[in-house]
């Protein structure tokens, strides 16, 4: 659901809401995957991001997001220099993530590494600074990042949703939306849970400790 504050906003450094502010948010989300500023990042730009990203400062915006700068942060203008100073080893490439009519024109694949952990996400800047992450570590997801979000992949067993929602309730966070899907009966079950409040670190750790959970991330809200 669209908020009028997404339309009248965000307050941002120019020049492009999709190529600068949205790109910055995709960088912020990728940073989440390794729990801080990555030491290395490979950024593969697709479509309009690849063709016109340089003129829009898309490279500066993604690097700024990876450094933890928000879309209204003046430092975005010099983010590439700051990245070099702070030891973020970045590489930009142009790529084709799929056919024109299948992949959003403003899409990017970001691979991040930090302290031996690495993660990869594919996301798009879908207009007016809004973003959509479609894939994390090869798993299909749908994360808009306008809520705190937990994404996880689990074995398709009885009571799994109840266990997860109980953990969240015990932590005192309220669920805004929850989407559950699976590829086949007994196969991987995917959950995307949007929350009204940020979950505590212990919640993520408790979820990861469940032996039937294969993979889980807690992603911060990165929209204004």
């Amino acid at each position: 659901m669209v908020s009028i504050l997404d339309i009248i906003g965000p307050v941002m450094v120019g020049p492009s809401s999709s190529h600068t502010a949205g790109a910055c948010r995709l960088g912020l989300l990728a940073r989440n995957l390794v729990g801080g500023t990555p030491q290395r990042a490979r950024i593969e730009l697709h479509g309009s991001f690849a063709r016109t990203g340089e003129g829009h400062g898309t490279d500066k915006a993604i690097a700024g997001g990876l450094l933890g700068f928000r879309p209204d942060d003046d430092r975005l203008r010099t983010a590439l220099e700051i990245a070099e100073r702070e030891g973020l080893d970045y590489a930009f490439e142009k790529t084709k993530l799929g056919e024109e009519n299948e992949v959003h024109p403003n899409s990017v694949r970001i691979t991040v590494e930090r302290d031996g952990r690495s993660s990869v996400m594919v996301g798009s800047s879908i207009g007016a600074g809004r973003i959509l992450v479609n894939e994390i570590d090869g798993f299909p997801v749908e994360v808009h990042a306008d809520h705190h979000t937990i994404v996880l992949v689990a074995e398709d067993i009885r009571g799994s949703i109840a266990r997860i929602t109980t953990l969240l309730a015990d932590d005192g966070v309220n669920i805004a939306t929850i989407r559950v899907s699976r590829r086949r009966r007994g196969g991987d079950a995917f959950m995307v849970i949007e929350l009204d409040e940020p979950p505590g670190d212990n919640v993520r750790d408790h979820i990861r400790a469940l032996d039937w959970v294969r993979w889980a991330f807690a992603l911060e809200k990165v929209n204004a």
Binding site: G9, M12, V13, G14, S17, S18, G57, G129
Partner: peptide, 12 residues
């Protein structure tokens, strides 16, 4: 000039 604006609805 990469100054601060309100994207309403977009920066462009």
């Amino acid at each position: 000039a990469m100054g601060v604006i309100v994207a309403a609805p977009t920066a462009g």
